[in-house]
Amino acid sequence: MQNATAPPSKRSKFEKQMDKIVYFLFFALFMMAFIGSLVFGVATNNDLDGEKMKRWYLQPNDSTIYFDPKKVGMASIFHFLTALMLYNYFIPISLYVSIEVVKVFQSSFINNDINLYYEPSDRPAHSRTSNLNEELGQVDTILSDKTGTLTCNSMEFIKCSVAGTAYGHGVTEAELGNGCERR
């Protein structure tokens, strides 16, 4: 358990970057609404000039709690909530949908590309996931032997033993050391 590591994230670096941008936009939205409601609260508090309101267009005689200079705290809170609702178009939630549509089109381009054909196995490229294009060209692991030369990572099944039952017909390195011959 000491060597156990957390499983790697299935999300691409691009999606993580997009999340950070959206979090920043949420923070900016919150700050715009908060600063706007503070300014609104100060302006509403200074509205009364005796019995007459400076901003006559707010109809002080018919004033509700939204613009009441006598209840500035509640008016500011309602203004904050109103500003959040009005400025929510600042957050591009449809960006995620647009990016996914682009990824699907790009994966269809991968499937139809003639140059992505592997002759030894006679198979064309087949994209089974929409975020494959984000991971192309990235090197995650390099396999090498003890001398440092790169290997092909091509393995051949020789023989194995499961619960005392031998599977495979090849001769293992241990059997070669005991004098057995390869077939």
Score class of each variant (00 low, 15 high):
P120S: 06
S107R: 08
Y96C: 02
S107P: 01
D122S: 09
V101R: 13
L95E: 02
Y118E: 10
N112E: 12
S94G: 07
E100Y: 11
N112I: 04
S107T: 08
Y117L: 05
S98A: 15
I99V: 13
E100G: 10
V97Y: 14
Y117V: 00
V104C: 10
S121C: 03
E119S: 13
Y118V: 00
S108G: 00
F109I: 04
V102C: 06
L95K: 05
E100L: 06
S94Y: 07
K103Q: 11
V102T: 09
S107L: 01
V104Q: 14
E119L: 07
D113V: 03
F105P: 05
K103E: 10
L95V: 07
F109G: 03
V104N: 14
S108C: 04
N111E: 06
F109C: 08
D113Y: 02
V101L: 14
I110A: 06
Y117I: 00
L116R: 04
S107E: 05
K103H: 12
K103C: 12
L116H: 02
V104H: 15
N111T: 03
S121I: 04
D113N: 12
V104Y: 15
S121A: 10
S121E: 13
D113A: 13
Y118N: 01
V102I: 13
E100I: 04
Y96T: 08
D122F: 09
L116V: 00
Y118D: 07
D122I: 04
Q106N: 08
Y117S: 02
